[in-house]
Amino acid sequence: MFPELNNLLNTTPPGVEQGKLTLLCDAKTDGSFLVHHFLSFYLKANCKVCFVALVQSFSHYNIVGQKLGVSLTMARERGQLVFLEGLKSSVDVFFQAQEEPHPLQFLREASAGNLEPLYQFVREALKPVDNEEATWKCPVLLVDDLSVLLSLGLGAVAVLDFIHYCRATVCQELKGNVVALVHDSGDAEDEENDILLNGLSHQSHLILRAEGLATGFCKDVHGQLRILWRRPLKPTAQRDRSLTYQYKIQDKSVSFFAKGMSPAVL
């Protein structure tokens, strides 16, 4: 969790908002620091987290989590974190006979072409349990990242439907939050990714867009972050709906500063 980002978004772990879809997007840079931020943020906020990790292994997220002050192993043991490790379980789809459909069943049955099993997995993971000893604040679904699903052969509409259902269940029914990362290839040829990105942007309440600098690589400024609040309508704060900051990723934190105000150039 990066306190400076919390300040920019005007939020704290105790005062977490509910029922929101946050879209993380990266263009010409790596936006995974945002995923690590939200993972540690919601674990610290005592939320029940379902993490669909399709890009890295559990130990990778665990090591980064430890730097940010959360232990994913402990969170998983006490039932706060449900971790779907896409890299490992995709192998299970092929080599283990299973009675119930696997969350990543679409890898095996291309004809199905939808993510219903994955949605059922998320729903099952975040379903409130009566006899659970610890009470979690609100359920949170975190996906890293949705563009991988397109690469695995799904259509943009199938991924949009999956997020639609997650929104209907997690955000509306359970009053929780959804956070998802999508890459912006910036490539006009990749129509499916554009449809996915724009479709999700229209559904989301908050968009965080990490962009590489237009002027190229820089040692002291790693990129810029655009923050766009979409809903609800705030007519009084119309001018502040969109903000842009530059950032520098450090060992355990990220520092944000106004454009052109890097401590290295002042």
Binding site: N114, E116, Y119, Q120, D161, H164, Y165, A168, T169, Q172
Partner: peptide, 9 residues
């Protein structure tokens, strides 16, 4: 049509 458009639920 928001809650269950494809009758997954």
């Amino acid at each position: 049509l928001f809650r269950d458009p494809l009758s997954w639920s």
